[in-house]
Design a binder for these strands. Sequence first.
DNA 1: TCCCTTATTGATAATGGTTTTCATTATCAA
DNA 2: TTGATAATGAAAACCATTATCAATAAGGGA
Lengths: 155, 155
Amino acid sequence: MGRGRRDLWWQGRLRGCGYRVTAGREIILDALTKTDKHLSAEDIYLAVRKACPGIGLATIYRTLEILVEMGLVFKFDFGDGRARYELVEGPNKEVAHHHHLVCTNCKRVIDYTDFIEDEIELLAKTEKGLSKKYNFDIKNHVIQFYGICGNCSTK
Amino acid sequence: MGRGRRDLWWQGRLRGCGYRVTAGREIILDALTKTDKHLSAEDIYLAVRKACPGIGLATIYRTLEILVEMGLVFKFDFGDGRARYELVEGPNKEVAHHHHLVCTNCKRVIDYTDFIEDEIELLAKTEKGLSKKYNFDIKNHVIQFYGICGNCSTK
DNA sequence: TCCCTTATTGATAATGGTTTTCATTATCAA
DNA sequence: TTGATAATGAAAACCATTATCAATAAGGGA
C-alpha cells in the first residue's frame, strides 16, 4: 500500500458522508494523527495555526463535531470543563487502544494499555448482551478510573 | 438501627470533613436520595425549591461540589452539556451499582445492572494492578457505552 | 477549463452551564 | 449567649461552545 493511499484514506470517508474535503479538515486530522495526547479544541487550534494561520476556532469545533459523528475521533470529558479529542485507532495510526486514569486533583490523565485485553474481551461480551436486551446499537465505550495520582498524594 | 441514626449518618461525614450541617445540604442530599434518576443541578434546584423556596442555584452547585469531593455523589457527563449527579450507593440508599448506556442521538440514558457482576470483578482486578503500577489511589470509575437507541434507529 | 450551486469558512456575537463576588446570615465551639 | 467564620442568595462574571452571516472555495456538470 503506497503512502499516497494511506494519506488519503479519510478523504473517501468524508466524501462518503457527503462532506467536502478541505485544507482545514486535512490539517486538523493531521494534528490529531501526529500526537498521542488528548487535545482540547484550543490545543488543536494553536497547533494548526502554525500551518494555517487564518483558520478560525469555530472551524476547529465544526470539524471535530463531524469527525466525532463519523466515528473517526473520540470525544472525552475528564472533568476540567473542556472536551478532549483523540483519533480513534485506525489505518493511519498505530496506537493501541487504551483507557484513562484521571487525577481528580491535578487533572492529569494517564493512558494505560495494561489489562486492556481482559477489558476488551469483557466489553465485547457485555456489548453483545446489552445491544440485544435494550435494542441498542453500540458504537463505542468509555472506561475511566478516577482518583489521586502519586504526585498529588505525597504533598 | 433506628431511623434517626440512618437519617443523620451523612452529618457525621460532613462534620468530619470540616463542613457545617445546613438545611440546604440536608435537603439537597434528600432530593438525591429520593430518586433513582441522574439529576442535573437545575433538576435539583427545582426539586429543592418546593421545600426550601429561598435556596439559590449557586448553593446547589457548591453543595454538589462538596458531595462529589467527599465521595458521596457521582458526577457524570453524558455529552449534553450539563453534568448529572447521582448518589453513590450507601447505607441510606438501596440502589444497585449500575453503569450507563447513552444514546448519542436523543441523549437518553439507560441504567443497566446486567453483566455488572463480571464488570465489577474485572474492574477490581484492574484497579489493583493500576494502583500499584501508576501509584494511583483510585476512588471510583465510569463505564459507559455510546450508541443509538431503538427509538432513534427506527426513525 | 470555466461556471454555478452550495457547503464551508472566519469573524464575531450570542448562548448557557457553572463559578465568583460580596454583603448578609447562620452554624457551632467556647 | 457570643464571637469567629463558614455558608448563603443575588447577581455579575466566566468561558467553552454554538449560532449568525457575509465572503470564499469545493467540485459536479457543461
